[in-house]
């Protein structure tokens, strides 16, 4: 997480980085040069004035064909402080040997404990779960956030989640669901797609992906505000290198997360050790991305505190 840029994707420390950075800033002594965070945290850090705003075209390398960086990243630049690296998704995996003959095809299988009995795992936070609950309660996809903005809609989502509350194991670290799946403690569970990839392809467990209603999210860099000019220059140098088209494409050799640059997509090759084609495992592959969400950053920035309070109160009941 420090300047060498060890990539801890979806690590818990991302959430803690926000708090730590705020403490450092309060002390006026920021020791980090570059922080790897998820997009939602980048937005919060930007809001708190803890991350530096960046001119993407000036700082970042152009695509090989000369397209400026801001075009190449496109609307993945969700905050002026954020330099996206990868696109990942939160989606479901299920035990092929425990679900019976009928394989689940829709996210609503999670809520159908009659057809697919057994425990499920969901993340211990409202984000994503509320959306899935509403969809499976019959809300049209493009109305989900309108419904969720109302107290009745929130109530409705929690009520839907209530139907499976006794069957849910709540996770808070990305490694939990893969572990639970491998142990056979759950039949299906949500987690990051890259984690499922390693369970399926690297550990060869009887697990399959359920790409339906996967939620895209982004992971990338922010530069803390208030760096000295020398440090800033060094960081920018590194950023320019680390986020160019080839580097982003290379990341996909190790884990099935999509590169954030459009120009990187054709360069995605085979897995470094397994030698399998990575493209079909990307969340953005057309076969996988039939029904997708993009994490609604603005909505959750506003409603996070409110809905989280309700969600935690519901959990504690």
């Amino acid at each position: 997480m420090e300047k060498t840029g060890i990539k801890v994707i979806n690590d818990e420390s991302s959430a803690e980085a926000v708090a730590k950075l705020r403490a450092m800033d309060e002390a006026g002594n920021v020791t980090w040069d570059l922080v790897d965070v998820v997009a939602a945290d980048a937005i919060r850090l930007c809001d708190e004035g803890l991350a530096m705003e960046i001119d993407h075209d000036e700082v970042l390398a152009k695509a090989p064909d000369g397209t400026p960086a801001s075009k190449d990243f496109g609307d993945l630049i969700v905050s002026q402080c954020f330099i996206p690296q990868i696109v990942y998704s939160t989606t479901f995996g299920y035990r092929t040997d425990l679900v019976g003959d009928k394989k689940p095809t829709s996210v609503c299988a999670v809520f159908d404990t009659k057809t697919w009995p057994g425990k499920r795992s969901l993340e211990k936070r409202p984000i994503n779960n509320m959306e899935w609950a509403l969809i499976c309660d019959g809300v049209a996809k493009d109305e989900v956030y309108d419904v969720l903005a109302t107290p009745e809609g929130q109530e409705r989502a929690l009520k839907k989640l209530d139907t499976i509350k006794d069957d849910v194991i709540w996770w808070s670290a990305g490694a939990d669901t893969p572990q639970l799946l491998a142990d056979g403690e759950i039949v299906m569970g949500s987690t990051y797609n890259g984690r499922l990839f390693s369970v399926i392809e690297e550990q060869k467990q009887p697990v399959a992906m359920l790409w339906d209603a996967q939620v895209f999210d982004l992971d990338g860099w922010i530069v803390p505000a208030g760096l000295s000019p020398e440090r800033k220059a060094r960081v920018m140098d590194y950023l320019k290198f680390a986020t160019d088209t080839q580097r982003l494409a290379d990341q996909a050799k190790y884990i099935s997360y999509g590169p954030a640059r459009k120009s990187s997509a054709p360069l995605v090759g085979k897995h470094a050790d397994l030698g399998i084609d990575m493209a079909p495992h990307m969340p953005t592959d057309p076969n996988n991305a039939k029904n997708t969400f993009l994490y609604n950053y603005e909505f959750w920035a506003d409603y996070r505190d409110d809905i989280d309070a309700k969600f935690q109160a519901w959990l504690a009941k």
Binding site: K20, A23, E26, A27, G28, N29, T31
Partner: peptide, 13 residues
Amino acid sequence: MYFFYSRVGLQGT
């Protein structure tokens, strides 16, 4: 300690 040390610059040291 977290609150106070971050005020005086000792947090994270």
